[in-house]
C-alpha cells in the first residue's frame, strides 16, 4: 500500500498555531505491524459483539460444524460401497481431509470476509476505509470477523485426530513436524488465494464467485487423493495455482505414497517457501488492485 505515516498526536483545537504534532511519538509507519494491530483491534471488537449473544454464537458455530461435516459424511457414504478411492483407504483420505480442513478453516476464519470486497467497491463503502489511518487490507480482512467459522476448524481437527489414531505410519521427527508445517503453510497458500481474489475484485466487481471457486472449490478438491483426478488438473494445481502444496505434496510424503507427477522428494518440504512466495505475489496483486481503484474510482 502506498502510504507512509509518521503518526501525529491529536491536534489541539484551542491552540491551532502551535505545532504540537509530535511526529516521533510513535515508531515509524510499518504496514505489516500497523495492519496487524488494526486487524486484531477490529477482530476483537467483532468477537466482543458476538459474545454478547452467546446462545446465538453457540448455535451458529455448531451449525458451521455440522454443515462442513457433511463433506466428510459424503466420503463415509462412498466408503460404505467401496474399500478404496483412487487407491487410498479411508484413514488416508481422512488425513488429507483433516489437514486441508484445518488449514482452510483457519484462513476462512482469519480473512474469509475478502469476498465482500467487490460489493464494497460497488456500493462505495470502500471509500470509508480509505480515509482511516490503517491499511485497507487489514480493515477488509477483519470486517465481520466470525468466530463461528471455528466450527470448520474443529471438524477438521476431529477428522485428523481420527486419521492419526487409525493410520499406521512410520513416525519420524520430520514427519511429526510436517503436520503443523502443512497446516501453517496451507493456511498461507489459501490466504494468498483469498487476497489475490480480493485484488481481482477491484477490477472485476463480480469476481467473488470466481474467488469462491478457487478457495472453497480448491479445498474440496484437496479432500480427495490426487489419483482420482486427471493428470492435467493435478499439474495445474501443482505448477500453476500451487494448491497441491497445502496437503497433497507433503501429505503423500508422510503417508509414504508416490506423487502422481514425477517430483523429487525434497519438494515435499517446500510448502513454507511456496506459501511465502504466494503471499508475496498476492500482496503485490493487492497493491496493484488498490492502486487501480484509487486511480479509477471504480
Amino acid at each position: 500500500m502506498a502510504e507512509a505515516r509518521t503518526a501525529t498526536a491529536a491536534h489541539h483545537p484551542d491552540c491551532p498555531d502551535r505545532p504540537d504534532r509530535t511526529d516521533d511519538a510513535y515508531a515509524p509507519y510499518s504496514p505489516v505491524r500497523d495492519g496487524l494491530r488494526a486487524y486484531l483491534m477490529i477482530a476483537a471488537m467483532w468477537i466482543r459483539s458476538t459474545m454478547a449473544y452467546r446462545a446465538s454464537f453457540a448455535m451458529t458455530a455448531f451449525g458451521n460444524f455440522a454443515a462442513t461435516s457433511f463433506d466428510f459424511l459424503a466420503i463415509l457414504l462412498m466408503f460404505s460401497q467401496v474399500d478404496e478411492l483412487g487407491g487410498y483407504t479411508l484413514p488416508e483420505i481422512a488425513f488429507l481431509y483433516g489437514v486441508v480442513g484445518i488449514a482452510f478453516g483457519l484462513t476462512d476464519l482469519a480473512i474469509g470476509s475478502m469476498d465482500r470486497l467487490g460489493r464494497r467497491v460497488r456500493d462505495g463503502t470502500l471509500d470509508t476505509l480509505l480515509v482511516r489511518p490503517v491499511p485497507v487490507l487489514a480493515q477488509v480482512a477483519a470486517d465481520k470477523f466470525a468466530l463461528r467459522r471455528l466450527g470448520r476448524v474443529t471438524q477438521g481437527l476431529f477428522v485428523l485426530g481420527y486419521a492419526l489414531t487409525v493410520l499406521d505410519i512410520d513416525w519420524t521427527p520430520v514427519k511429526v513436524l510436517m503436520i503443523p508445517m502443512m497446516v501453517l503453510s496451507g493456511g498461507l497458500i489459501f490466504g494468498a488465494v483469498f487476497v489475490a481474489g480480493g485484488a481481482f475484485q477491484f477490477i472485476a466487481l463480480d469476481a467473488a464467485e470466481v474467488q469462491n471457486s478457487f478457495t472453497y472449490g480448491g479445498s474440496t478438491l484437496l479432500q480427495y487423493p490426487p489419483t482420482v483426478f486427471a493428470k492435467d488438473l493435478v499439474r495445474g494445481v501443482t505448477f500453476v495455482l500451487p494448491l497441491a502444496f497445502v496437503n497433497w505434496v507433503p501429505a503423500l510424503y508422510v503417508l509414504g505414497r508416490p506423487y502422481p507427477l514425477d517430483l523429487p522428494t525434497w519438494v515435499a518440504f517446500t510448502p513454507p517457501l511456496v506459501g511465502a512466495g504466494c503471499c508475496a505475489l498476492a500482496g503485490l496483486a493487492w497493491r496493484a488492485g488498490l492502486r487501480s481503484y484509487r486511480s479509477t474510482g471504480s
Binding site: 502506498a2 502510504e3 507512509a4 505515516r5 509518521t6 503518526a7 501525529t8 491536534h11 509507519y29 500497523d34 456500493d123 462505495g124 463503502t125 471509500d127 470509508t128 480509505l130 480515509v131 482511516r132 489511518p133 490503517v134 491499511p135
Partner: peptide, 16 residues
C-alpha cells in the same frame, strides 16, 4: 501519504 493525512482530517459522507 493517505494514512498520515487521515489523522488530521475528518470525513463525513452523507450517502454512506
Amino acid at each position: 501519504e493517505r494514512t498520515r493525512l487521515a489523522h488530521r482530517i475528518g470525513v463525513v459522507f452523507g450517502q454512506r
